[in-house]
C-alpha cells in the first residue's frame, strides 16, 4: 500500500469523526458518519482486508446511515451539543 495515502486517509478519519460528533444537526451528523465509514472502508481495502472493506461498505455506509436517518426522522433533528 502507498503510505502517503494511508496517512492522508487516517487524518481525514480523525477529522470526520470529530465533525460528526461536533455538528449540532443530527441529520448532518448521520451523513458525516456515513462518510467516515466510507473512508475507513477505503483504508481497509488499502490494507488488503478486502472482505472487511466490502462488509464495511455495505453495512457502515449503507445500512447504519439509513437506520440512523430513520431514527432521526422519527425523533428530533436538533441536538444540544
Amino acid at each position: 500500500m502507498i503510505w502517503q495515502f494511508d496517512i492522508l486517509i487516517l487524518i481525514f478519519l480523525v477529522v470526520t469523526a470529530v465533525i460528526s460528533l461536533q455538528v449540532k444537526d443530527l441529520l448532518a451528523a448521520s451523513m458525516v458518519f456515513g462518510t467516515y465509514s466510507f473512508l475507513i472502508c477505503l483504508l481497509w481495502a488499502g490494507m488488503g482486508a478486502v472482505d472487511v472493506a466490502f462488509t464495511e461498505a455495505t453495512v457502515g455506509a449503507g445500512i447504519s446511515a439509513v437506520i440512523l436517518i430513520a431514527t432521526v426522522y422519527n425523533t428530533r433533528r436538533d441536538s444540544s451539543d
Binding site: 448521520s30 458518519f33 467516515y36 475507513i40 440512523l68 441536538s79 444540544s80 451539543d81
Partner: peptide, 21 residues
C-alpha cells in the same frame, strides 16, 4: 460526555471501528 443519545451512539460506533482498525 455527550448529552444527546444519538451522539452517544455515533461515538459508540466510532469506538467500535477504532477497535476493528
Amino acid at each position: 460526555t455527550k448529552n444527546n443519545l444519538i451522539k452517544k451512539l455515533i461515538g459508540m460506533s466510532i469506538f467500535q471501528t477504532a477497535i476493528i482498525l
